[in-house]
Amino acid sequence: MRLLATEPASIAKILDASIKLYSACFSRLWGILSILAVLYIAMGLLTATLQPDPAAPQTAALELLSENLLLILAFVIVFSLVSFVLYAALIYRLDNLTNEREDSFSEAITAGFRAFPSMFLAAFLYMVVIIVGYILLLIPGLILTLSLMFYLYFIVIDGLGGYRALRASHSLVWGHWWRTATIFTVPMIIWMAVMFALGFLMAFLAPADNQVLMQILMNLLSVFFMPYFFALGYVQFHDLKLRKSGSDLASRLGR
């Protein structure tokens, strides 16, 4: 089954292809998603543990934060390391599936570790650029947030270094920013609406002492929906490459 188009596609076809890719690859991602689920459960528990008592003074919240600062830093470091490796492994498996190449969970994790140094550097530079963009003015921050986001795919699929991947991503999106924004906005709005409705329902039904369980369930739901956005990004990454390669012009002239 062909999952990717051979010429630039419409927004509707990209969204349709992303759903098909998500469905086709989901069975290959159980190992990756299981580890991510454990991380997100731990994050939910840590968040609940460090949640200050609303009735307590503000100084108590600051004391709680300072007392657990080392724990928070350790968790952030471990979470970032494992997440980067797993995100790279996820993209690696998506690429192999669409190109009909066999792989294994261990191969995907190994690929994730290989990509980690470049991903870490790119993520650091990405955050610095985005923060500066938002500080200077909101619009540059929004533009760069989207135009630089494909660095993950350039690192894993094309083997670029961190800085080169960011530059390649910006060049790839430039000229198709609004189209790319529209493609990601549609499923994002649906996802936010689902999460809001679910959160409202669970907050209404669950007693106050079950809010930790609610947070964990919301995090787990995010884990199993997240691969869709990676699949969508992969399809859009492929489509933008077709457009930048000149296939867009050729296809238009042929119609």
Rank of each mutant, 00 (worst) to 15 (best):
L142C: 02
A111Q: 11
L121P: 01
L148D: 06
L148G: 03
S104D: 02
G31C: 04
L33I: 07
Y92F: 15
R101Q: 15
V38S: 05
L138M: 08
P54D: 10
A55L: 12
I130N: 04
A88F: 03
P52R: 14
F105K: 07
I135G: 04
S118Q: 13
L97F: 05
V129Q: 05
S27R: 15
L45P: 01
S106I: 12
A55H: 09
L142R: 08
T47R: 13
P140W: 11
L137G: 07
Y40F: 08
L50T: 04
A74M: 14
R101K: 15
L142G: 00
P54H: 12
A37Q: 08
S80V: 06
Q58E: 15
F75Q: 09
Y153C: 01
P54L: 14
E107W: 05
G112C: 05
S104T: 12
S34I: 13
I143L: 08
R28N: 09
F84R: 14
L125G: 00
A111E: 10
F79Q: 12
L90Q: 07
L90C: 00
L144A: 14
L148Q: 03
I130E: 01
L90A: 03
R93H: 04
A123W: 11
L50G: 02
G31S: 06
L142Y: 06
A123V: 03
W30V: 14
N68D: 03
A56V: 04
V38M: 10
I109W: 07
R101F: 13
N68C: 02
F150A: 06
G112D: 07
G141C: 10
A111T: 02
E102V: 10
S34M: 13
P117K: 15
L137Y: 13
S106Q: 10
S34L: 15
L36W: 07
L142S: 00
A42Y: 05
I130Q: 05
T49F: 10
L142F: 13
Y92I: 01
